[in-house]
């Protein structure tokens, strides 16, 4: 029993999201997984992109026979039955739903069943590749994980989506900790940026909540400090692009009051699409390429619970 508890405590779930499609979430999840596996960690990758699963592609695995949808629809009972061993030692995969349209929207009991089963898997790290968007499912997986990682590109649309993602995630978190229906409604209303109540920032929201119930407002304040998403800037071409990560960190701190951790960046490089074209993982095909090494550095930061410091810019 004690052993089992140890095993549970040891396991970490990391989720990778970002709001926008096609920004490298799967690329980064897959290759973080490979890096960890090479460090002799047992890794399970889960393609939780229930809309357009393609994590297997970044790993160079063909369309798998068993997928998450088989588990969600109870065609199989045990999570073990949908886990595929990859060619890389210590790395296995649960492929994403391909055919099961309803899977894009699993209900609460399906989600809890999945999470309950994931807890029993023998792995050091479980990496969730979340799809694009800010649907409740994506947000819930993000909030549930031990480390929520956001991927962003150094361009306005991706950044805008990342901010929307952050805001949605922690307003959802707010809603989970309050029971008062009036406050829940207020949070919903505040989600709309153009709300008529003059609530622009989380600060405004908390002030308003405090007027209704002071204690609840204070609980929400505490929630803000506990919410520490991580950031990766992908497709970096210049020093200025790297700088954008620090700027986003600063803006998040001033606007949301949250402490975003800047994990690192991944350089833009042709090796990425070359590896995808050759249907082999980047870290296997081009282990010494710049993006592969960037991802390794990110893994080191994650393991040591460190982040990028400004000195990298000088």
């Amino acid at each position: 029993m004690i052993e089992l508890q140890d095993a549970l405590r040891r396991k970490e779930i990391w989720a990778v999201g970002g709001g926008k499609g096609g920004i490298g979430k799967s690329l980064i999840t897959g290759n973080i997984g490979i890096s960890l596996a090479r460090l002799k960690k047992k890794v399970l990758l889960v393609d939780a992109d229930l809309g357009g699963a393609n994590l297997h592609t970044t790993l160079g695995i063909g369309v798998p026979e068993m997928t998450l949808s088989d588990f969600l629809s109870r065609r199989v009972e045990n999570i073990q039955d949908v886990i595929i061993q990859s060619e890389i030692k210590n790395l296995s995969l649960i492929s994403g739903a391909q055919d099961f349209l309803d899977a894009a929207n699993p209900n609460f009991s399906q989600k809890t069943r999945l999470l309950r089963h994931l807890e029993t898997v023998d792995a050091d790290y479980i990496l969730l590749d979340l799809g694009a968007g800010t649907s409740y499912n994506i947000l819930d997986f993000f909030l549930f994980s031990d480390q929520g990682i956001l991927v962003v590109l150094p361009e306005p649309t991706a950044i805008e989506n990342a901010y929307r993602f952050i805001k949605s995630a922690f307003y959802r978190r707010f809603k989970k900790v309050v029971t008062h229906q009036g406050i829940k409604d207020l949070i919903d209303a505040a989600m709309d940026q153009k709300n008529t109540m003059g609530i622009r920032t989380p600060y405004d929201l908390i002030e308003r909540v405090k007027l209704m119930e002071r204690e609840v407002g204070e609980i929400l304040e505490l929630e803000i400090t506990k919410f520490r998403p991580k950031l990766i800037v992908n497709q970096v071409r210049t020093k200025g692009d790297i700088q954008i990560g620090f700027s986003i960190k600063s803006a998040c701190n001033k606007y949301f009051g949250i402490n975003l951790e800047y994990l690192g960046y991944v350089e833009y490089d042709d090796s990425v699409w070359q590896s995808i074209r050759s249907k082999r993982p980047l870290a296997v095909e081009y282990p010494y390429s710049r993006p592969a090494r960037c991802i390794e550095r990110i893994v080191h930061n994650l393991l040591r619970k460190e982040q990028l410091t400004l000195s990298t810019l000088y």
Partner: peptide, 26 residues
């Protein structure tokens, strides 16, 4: 020197978060 650059009028990192007036005040 660093923060000044973050809050430049056209800073991409502020996109959709701060209005031009808020940025000016900052």
């Amino acid at each position: 020197d660093r923060i000044k650059k973050v809050y430049e009028p056209n800073s991409v990192a502020l996109y959709s978060l701060f209005s031009p007036e808020e940025t000016a005040i900052l």
